[in-house]
């Protein structure tokens, strides 16, 4: 099937089966999904539904049992420096300073240009003054920003974020979402964002892909037609949120 115009990432018939103690476990079953260029798509699902597996397959780290992922029409078989995966802050290299981490993917550039880029991204994620600091001395949120900066510095066209703010406290998490949106609007990357947090997905996404429990399929795709910055108490926001709660089969009361 030819991809529609403007489609960046195209997933077709994707299935994943893992060996288990007794036989096998089907994690993903026959997924189809298109992500448009410059789009921010959240993949939302309960823990263990295989959404991280999906992202790892799209990132080229894991081979699917069946189906294909193509980006710009080219099949993905291995990781690629044009598409960077951001792990929940664990991806920063503890043996490199903030500067060293951001410069990691810029090895091939001449010194001057490399320095310029590092400077730019240090500033973009608000780590000015911490250039020579090692990650252990940074807070969780700063480490997360550092990893995002390292990813952006190589100027990728796609970012994969796997529950990137999951380990942060709720205040930092809110700030980081704002930062991510700001960066996304400035740089217009295509972003695939895995989360289990309904509010997070409604705050960020152009579209929310709701995954079913294992073996996962795409249960529904919800368009979020709300301008940024989003008003978290507006009717539109609450309507989208309620729809997702309903879709997942959760009563909206605890």
């Amino acid at each position: 099937m030819p991809a529609a115009a403007g489609v960046k990432v195209s997933i077709r018939g994707l299935s994943m089966r893992f060996p288990a103690e007794a036989g096998t476990v089907d994690v993903l079953q026959d997924l189809d999904l298109d992500v448009r260029e410059g789009e921010l798509v959240c993949i939302l699902g309960p823990s263990g539904c295989g959404k991280s597996t999906l992202l790892n397959i799209v990132g080229g780290f894991v081979r699917p049992t069946a189906g294909t992922v193509t980006i710009d029409g080219v099949r993905v078989t291995e990781p690629d420096r044009r598409r960077i995966f951001v792990f929940q802050e664990r991806g920063v290299f503890p043996w490199l300073t903030v500067e060293g981490n951001i410069a990691f993917g810029l090895h091939h550039l001449p010194d001057g240009e490399r320095r310029q880029r590092v400077e730019h991204y240090v500033a973009l994620v608000g780590l000015g003054g911490f250039e020579r600091t090692y990650p252990h001395a940074l807070s969780g949120g700063m480490k997360q920003r550092l990893e995002v900066a390292r990813a952006l510095a190589v100027n990728p066209d796609v970012l994969y974020l796997d529950e990137p703010f999951g380990a942060l406290d709720s205040i930092t998490r809110l700030q980081m979402r704002g930062e991510l949106l700001r960066i996304w609007q400035a740089e217009r990357k295509t972003i695939l964002f895995v989360t289990h947090d309904i509010d997070e997905s409604v705050q960020l996404a152009d579209r929310i892909v709701i995954m079913s429990a294992r073996p996962s399929t795409i249960q529904r795709i919800v368009e979020v037609d709300l301008e940024h910055p989003r008003d978290l108490s507006s009717r539109g926001y609450i309507e989208v949120r309620d729809r997702i709660f309903e879709e997942i089969g959760l009563a909206h009361k605890v």
Binding site: D80, R81, F87, R90, G91, F93, W95, F104, G105
Partner: peptide, 29 residues
């Protein structure tokens, strides 16, 4: 080694030797 570090290294396009030199050795140091 933390698998995450290895994946990050590969993601930035490092070949086997570069991966050893720039990720595996420092991570194992």
């Amino acid at each position: 080694l933390d698998e995450t570090n290895l994946r990050a290294g590969r993601n930035f396009g490092l070949g086997r030797l570069a991966l050893v030199r720039r990720v595996i050795l420092p991570a194992a140091m």
